[in-house]
Computed example of a mutant assay.
Amino acid sequence: MADQARISNLDAIEAFRSALIVFISKTRQALDTVQDAVKKNRAWLQTEQPAFWSSQIKQRQKRLDQAQQELMSARMSEFVETPAAQQMAVRKARAALEEAQAKMERTKAWSRDYDRTVDPLARKLDSLRDFIDSDLALAIAHLVEIQKILDAYNETPMPAAAPETQS
Rank of each mutant, 00 (worst) to 15 (best):
M88W: 05
K62A: 13
D113C: 06
Q59H: 14
R94I: 00
Q56C: 05
L10G: 09
A102N: 14
L136D: 01
Q46W: 01
T165K: 11
Q4A: 05
F23M: 11
A93R: 01
R116N: 12
I149H: 06
T27K: 04
T165I: 15
A161I: 10
A96F: 03
H142R: 14
A141R: 11
I149L: 07
F79R: 08
P83W: 01
E48I: 05
R60I: 01
E145M: 13
A152V: 09
L20S: 06
D133P: 02
L71T: 00
M158G: 09
M1K: 07
I7G: 02
I140E: 07
A19R: 14
K39F: 12
A84D: 15
D151I: 05
T107W: 00
E48Y: 07
R106I: 05
D126Q: 08
M158I: 10
Q35M: 13
S73C: 05
D11F: 04
Q59R: 13
A74T: 04
Q29C: 08
S134D: 14
T156L: 14
A160C: 06
L128C: 08
I7H: 11
S18F: 12
T33C: 06
K26H: 13
R6L: 06
A122I: 00
S25H: 13
K124A: 09
D11C: 06
A5C: 04
P120D: 05
A51I: 03
Q59P: 03
A2P: 13
D36V: 11
E78G: 14
N154C: 14
R17I: 02
L10P: 02
A37I: 04
D113G: 08
D32V: 01
E81K: 11
M72H: 14
I149D: 13
Q147Y: 03
V34P: 00
R60T: 00
S111P: 00
K39P: 00
S25R: 15
D3V: 04
K148E: 09
R63A: 11
M158K: 15
D126N: 12
E145N: 11
I21S: 05
P157T: 15
L125Q: 04
